[in-house]
Design a protein around this nucleic acid. Structure first.
Lengths: 221, 221
DNA sequence: ATATTTATGGAACGTCGTTCCATTCAAGTG
DNA sequence: CACTTGAATGGAACGACGTTCCATAAATAT
């Protein structure tokens, strides 16, 4: 008599589950993704989800893969200048992780995700095109991708621990204020750059780093 | 009659708790630090720990702070060449996070820890000493510290998800093998650098990145 | 027609961070 | 000195989580 386990009209699938997980992650942050919340959104039980997905790690990996793949498809980096192409790709990753901070956390939990391969290749291909000689190519590539994902990951951490409602510049002003009040003998440098810390824009700063690395690469061309 | 809550001979303290937490983290990894395991090691209950420590976040922050502070004290970077000093500091952080991977995870969970200030200042002071002009100083500093902590954090992630017992070169060979089998039209670059990926040493590669950024900084001197 | 696999969803298990609370001891107060 | 107050302790209990188990039903194979 119990109609407990009938077949659903809209069958579950890994794709549907991942899509719902992304909605949850974007709406409520990393902590918002629980199997109970997910089951509730999908009007099912946790057991049914586990039939399609091995565990939470696989779910997070699939969600990350989906978002990164979508972002890479949207990036148009076909211009003639390889340096501009690298800047475009780097900013694309930065903006993606900024919009989905949980992606950054996932990178620091499980690097080497399949979707990263497209990013890796895109960066490497432009370096090749730029004429970086064989001996310096791997170093140049490794430095760039490490910087890009490292910086984007740190930015995501900042975004995550930012109290909702407050804005970034207020938080930066707080930190810079602390720096300017440090001991003058022990922290002369931090005191001096405190105003720049308060005024800087994370995205511009990220790009300045990419440019500095490109300048370093320029010395071996 | 119940002797349940007598005073301890060796009174608890935040210092003792943090020390025990570090031992646990080093021995069992991030997952090994639970209030129950900690209470058992200290022969107490979780309630007593909470009297000295606000929550797990504060405990992790204190443990990280302790380890980083100790590492910075051990670093001797007094040499004449500011570039060498920067390399020494960078490698010191790399080695510290390599030895305590949970520190890397903590950085991506809560950056701006107080202990980082000493590292920040040390890097900045050497850039100043190097003669980086005012306009480029903040960019140079920001790029370096972002790279150092980003790279060390990614390295920690690799260390954490490495199956205990297996070695890094085997894991790298696996990944490189995958790269060399990628589609030749879509991934020419990754196929080409696969042998270098398999052969590289993480620490050397990290240092090569620092050198490349230093070369970039050299272009604005 | 029957057996087997695919799929479902709720209940139950074990662990975690955290809170609560009864209790004890040390330090102040008259 | 008695007595009150608050620091400190440690175990029990709470609620939420990831995960596993299981009874069931529909789809598919035999």
């Amino acid at each position: 008599m119990t109609k407990r386990t009938e077949r659903r009209a809209d069958a579950l699938s890994k794709e549907k589950i991942v899509a719902a997980a992304i909605l949850l992650l974007d709406a409520e942050g990393e902590g918002g993704l629980t199997f109970r919340a997910l089951a509730s959104r999908l009007a099912t039980g946790s057991g049914a989800i586990y039939w399609h997905v091995a565990d939470k790690g696989e779910l997070l990996a699939a969600a990350t893969d989906h978002v990164v793949t979508r972002a890479m498809s949207a990036i148009e980096a076909g211009g003639a200048d390889p340096r501009d192409a690298i800047r475009t790709i780097a900013l694309g990753m930065f903006d993606t992780i900024d919009a989905h901070p949980w992606v950054g956390a996932q990178f620091s939990r499980a690097p080497w995700q399949p979707a990263m391969l497209r990013v890796f290749e895109a960066i490497g291909a432009r370096l090749w095109q730029l004429g970086v000689p064989e001996g310096a190519r791997f170093n140049a590539w490794s430095t760039l991708v490490t910087y890009i994902f490292g910086a984007a990951g740190q930015n995501a951490a900042n975004a995550r621990l930012q109290a909702p409602g407050t804005d970034r510049s207020a938080a930066l002003a707080d930190i810079a204020g602390g720096w300017s009040r440090l001991d003058a003998a022990e922290y002369p440098f931090l005191r001096q750059v405190a105003p720049q810390l308060a005024a800087h824009d994370d995205r511009d700063q990220f790009l300045a780093g990419v440019d500095l690395i490109l300048a370093g690469i320029g010395t071996v061309l």
